[in-house]
């Protein structure tokens, strides 16, 4: 009877370590000034994206040819573009596009990179050689050039840009996961898991992936800046989001023609890209410290 009474409270307590870890990470990030800035900018970005219809002063697609190229002022916070659209509202709605790109690229790239890297690192030998040569092929092209090639083949659109960016962004993750896996592969706890009869898939999923995850998460966060820049670059070249979508890179591309007389067309989307990529970089740096296992489970 003592056994059952001892056993009963346990299942309820099980989710707690995860929650504690999440809270500790957030507290840790908020304490350091740089990562706190990153968190703040990202919170702003997410709020802007979620509440864009409430915060926007104008319809981002509404053209008004009587008020084209208005400088920033009370009527238009960040001015208007060459078709009289409100830049402030367009930036807010652009945040949605940026978030979509980041989210989709991350959920595609993270698992692919982890899978390829851990499998290559764990099995070694021929599996490793084949997987790593494939990775090398992707790595041997500059990512923007390769994604341009993919978009050119698939046809310019936002979705294709996301696919193209994902195809070029996974190899560094795979490389990182493989390097980490090779460190842990020989560890005694892996040997112990093998002695318990764990299958290779189980060892990779339960023992190796948790060890690789922090550095992969950090790398993904740091990668997001590159992803935003590549997306903006593709948008700028007309290969990403198509008009009239308010994508930040595309906004800069169209604003470029009016840059000399109307600085606000390029400056505000540029600042948005700069601050969001900077925020992701700072956050990634902060995560590096916060994801230390001793930090995560501190109570």
């Amino acid at each position: 009877m003592t056994d059952t009474s001892r056993a009963r409270p346990a299942p309820r307590r099980r989710p707690r370590p995860g929650l504690i870890a999440a809270r500790n990470i957030l507290v840790y990030l908020a304490k350091a000034p740089t990562s706190a800035f990153g968190l703040l900018v990202l919170a702003l970005l997410i709020l802007a994206a979620v509440f864009a219809p409430l915060l926007a002063t104008h319809d981002p697609y509404a053209q008004n040819l009587t008020t084209t190229l208005q400088p920033p002022g009370a009527a238009h916070f960040f001015g208007t573009d060459e078709l009289g659209r409100d830049i402030y509202s367009r930036l807010l709605f652009g945040a949605r596009i940026t978030l979509t790109i980041i989210f989709l690229v991350t959920i595609v790239v993270g698992p692919i990179g982890l899978l390829v890297g851990t499998v290559a690192g764990y099995f070694g030998g021929r599996t490793d050689t084949v997987l790593m040569r494939v990775t090398d092929i992707f790595l041997s092209f500059p990512s923007l050039i390769l994604s341009m090639a993919f978009v050119a083949a698939l046809g310019p659109s936002l979705n294709n840009a996301i696919i193209a960016i994902s195809l070029t962004a996974w190899p560094p993750i795979a490389r990182l996961a493989r390097a980490e896996t090779m460190i842990f592969r020989q560890a005694d706890y892996i040997a112990a898991a093998r002695l318990q009869g764990a299958s290779n898939a189980r060892i990779i999923w339960r023992s190796i992936v948790p060890m690789c995850l922090p550095s992969v998460l950090i790398r993904l966060t740091l990668n997001m800046a590159t992803v935003i820049l590549t997306a903006a670059g593709l948008g700028f070249l007309g290969l990403g989001a198509q008009p009239p979508l308010p994508e930040w890179g595309a906004m800069i591309a169209t604003g470029r023609r009016y840059m000399i007389d109307s600085w606000w067309l390029v400056t505000f989307p540029g600042l948005a890209i700069l601050s969001v990529s900077l925020a992701f970089n700072l956050l990634g740096d902060g995560l590096r410290d916060a994801l230390d296992p001793k930090q995560m489970t501190r109570r």
Binding site: A10, Y189, A191
Partner: peptide, 28 residues
């Protein structure tokens, strides 16, 4: 079964004792 030399390296640093002990039970 085997007990390893270094107890600092033979327990998975991110697994609670519960998962260390329940893993073999689950596998079997």
């Amino acid at each position: 079964q085997m007990v390893f030399q270094d107890p600092y390296g033979s327990l998975h640093p991110r697994h609670s004792i519960r998962s260390v002990l329940s893993e073999p039970l689950r596998i079997h």
